[in-house]
């Protein structure tokens, strides 16, 4: 069998220090002025730099939805966006959903319907559900099932997740 060599020429920029870029984000209502390296994703910024670990990493590749947050009310995979690109944006994470001690209706509905087991996909599911409600497209169970399919749940809590989202969706004033 042959010898397998990974030949990788030293990239010229490898040893160059990374410059940081100043950005301003409104995270869960508070304004944060940050110095961010351009290669940092929004997900890693939230988890590693801002200690908002409620936002989860399940794949880092936009395939699971665990990292879903709301940017200016729209749901996005925070692993797929660089933090610097979001300069000036308002970001809501799971930590910003409740109002003081009062849970957000989706949070309460998830507990009531036991819409999780291990809880690891849950913050992403809840943020995604809020994004779905904001979009105003879903009216039926089938819509919810389809439009929540970007959020995997390996524990298989789907039927309960759909029940919880339907509860809140139906309680929403008609648009």
């Amino acid at each position: 069998m042959p010898t397998l060599t990974a030949s990788r020429p030293l990239p010229a920029e490898a040893s160059r220090p990374i410059d940081t870029i100043p950005i301003t984000l409104t995270v869960n209502g508070s304004v944060r002025r940050l110095q961010v390296e351009p290669w940092t994703t929004l997900l890693d910024l939230l988890r590693d730099k801002l200690d908002l670990t409620g936002t989860k990493k399940g794949c880092d590749h936009g395939q699971c939805g665990a990292c879903t947050v709301l940017i200016d009310g729209r749901r996005i995979n925070s692993c797929l966006t660089l933090a610097v690109v979001r300069d000036g944006c308002a970001i809501t994470t799971i930590e910003g959903m409740a109002t003081g001690a009062d849970l957000h209706p989706l949070q309460a509905a998830f507990i009531e319907h036991d819409a999780f087991q291990c809880g690891y996909c849950t913050p992403g599911q809840i943020c995604s559900a809020q994004g779905l409600i904001n979009e105003g497209r879903a009216t039926s169970r089938d819509d919810v099932r389809e439009l929540m399919s970007g959020n995997l749940c390996r524990c298989g809590a789907y039927t309960n997740i759909t029940d919880a989202v339907m509860d809140v969706l139906q309680a929403e004033p008609a648009r």
Binding site: T55, L103, D114, F116
Partner: peptide, 13 residues
């Protein structure tokens, strides 16, 4: 309901 539910839905877990 799960007693650890609040921690899980608020991201505190």
């Amino acid at each position: 309901s799960r007693v650890d539910g609040r921690e899980k839905v608020t991201g505190a877990a």
